[in-house]
Simulated scan of single mutants.
Amino acid sequence: MAQVSMTVNGKPVTGEVEGRTLLVDFLRNGLGLTGTHVGCDTSQCGACVVHVDGRAVKSCTMLALEAEGAEVKTIEGMANPDGSLSVIQQAFQDHHGLQCGFCTPGMVMSAAALLAENPKPTEAEIRHYLDGNLCRCTGYHNIVKAILAASGQDVSIAAE
């Protein structure tokens, strides 16, 4: 067992982990932050995306010990300080960018990373950026619309 310390959603945390413990497992099982989902265990689906030092990372591909000293943000840290939904979360709600909701935390985290890099992405850029996030319910159209809306763009430019 080894000790790992990091800042998660603005709060310092420390825990004991085995060397093989994945970041997603530490977040879910060690810290009780179950918004980060495990969908495939093979880095294919993107349900486990979190931000590590400002970068979108599939947390099923990273050992918890690799996040030593890092700033980690999960879906639980995306809300506004008053608890209201962030612009991205609200856009997903307003534009029906979810159905079953399983992929939504990873989609929101990926969308936030995209908008941090590119505040006004085109539809094609959004679709390309989300290439590593799988949704088995929506067909992505409303997810793209939600991201366009969160970026302040006209959602009617999204192809039907």
Score class of each variant (00 low, 15 high):
residue 49 V to N: 13
residue 40 C to L: 07
residue 42 T to H: 09
residue 62 M to P: 00
residue 91 A to T: 09
residue 70 A to C: 15
residue 80 N to Y: 02
residue 99 Q to L: 03
residue 8 V to Q: 03
residue 82 D to M: 08
residue 153 Q to W: 02
residue 113 A to T: 08
residue 71 E to P: 07
residue 117 E to D: 04
residue 90 Q to E: 14
residue 41 D to I: 09
residue 53 D to Y: 04
residue 11 K to Q: 15
residue 112 A to H: 00
residue 34 T to N: 02
residue 156 S to K: 15
residue 89 Q to E: 11
residue 89 Q to M: 12
residue 4 V to E: 07
residue 56 A to D: 08
residue 151 S to H: 03
residue 155 V to F: 03
residue 143 I to C: 08
residue 130 L to D: 10
residue 149 A to G: 01
residue 69 G to S: 13
residue 39 G to F: 00
residue 25 D to Y: 06
residue 83 G to R: 00
residue 59 S to P: 04
residue 122 T to R: 00
residue 102 F to A: 08
residue 158 A to P: 04
residue 136 R to L: 02
residue 36 T to I: 08
residue 94 D to K: 10
residue 11 K to A: 15
residue 88 I to K: 02
residue 117 E to C: 12
residue 40 C to T: 04
residue 62 M to C: 03
residue 80 N to Q: 15
residue 1 M to H: 14
residue 2 A to W: 00
residue 99 Q to D: 07
residue 108 V to D: 15
residue 152 G to L: 10
residue 102 F to E: 06
residue 118 N to A: 08
residue 69 G to M: 06
residue 58 K to I: 04
residue 9 N to W: 12
residue 112 A to V: 01
residue 33 L to F: 06
residue 152 G to I: 13
residue 50 V to Y: 09
residue 68 E to I: 14
residue 6 M to N: 01
residue 79 A to H: 05
residue 127 R to Y: 08
residue 33 L to G: 14
residue 58 K to R: 14
residue 98 L to N: 07
residue 128 H to S: 15
residue 37 H to W: 00
residue 125 E to L: 01
residue 132 G to I: 05
residue 152 G to D: 15
residue 145 K to Q: 11
residue 36 T to E: 01
residue 140 Y to E: 04
residue 90 Q to N: 14
residue 141 H to C: 02
residue 98 L to I: 01
residue 139 G to L: 03
residue 28 R to C: 09
residue 69 G to W: 10
residue 30 G to L: 10
residue 75 I to V: 15
residue 136 R to T: 01
residue 99 Q to P: 05
residue 15 G to D: 07
residue 124 A to W: 00
residue 10 G to P: 13
residue 73 K to C: 05
residue 106 G to V: 09
residue 46 G to P: 02
residue 132 G to A: 15
residue 110 S to I: 05
residue 119 P to I: 07
residue 147 I to W: 02
residue 157 I to N: 00
residue 33 L to N: 13
residue 94 D to G: 14
residue 157 I to P: 00
residue 137 C to I: 02
residue 22 L to I: 03
residue 31 L to F: 09
residue 119 P to T: 01
residue 153 Q to T: 03
residue 9 N to R: 07
residue 98 L to M: 11
residue 146 A to K: 10
residue 9 N to F: 06
residue 124 A to Q: 15
residue 36 T to W: 10
residue 52 V to K: 11
residue 31 L to W: 06
residue 39 G to S: 00
residue 88 I to Y: 01
residue 48 C to E: 12
residue 52 V to D: 13
residue 103 C to L: 09
residue 59 S to A: 14
residue 149 A to N: 01
residue 132 G to D: 14
residue 146 A to E: 06
residue 10 G to R: 11
residue 41 D to S: 05
residue 127 R to C: 13
residue 96 H to G: 01
residue 3 Q to W: 01
residue 37 H to Q: 14
residue 55 R to V: 10
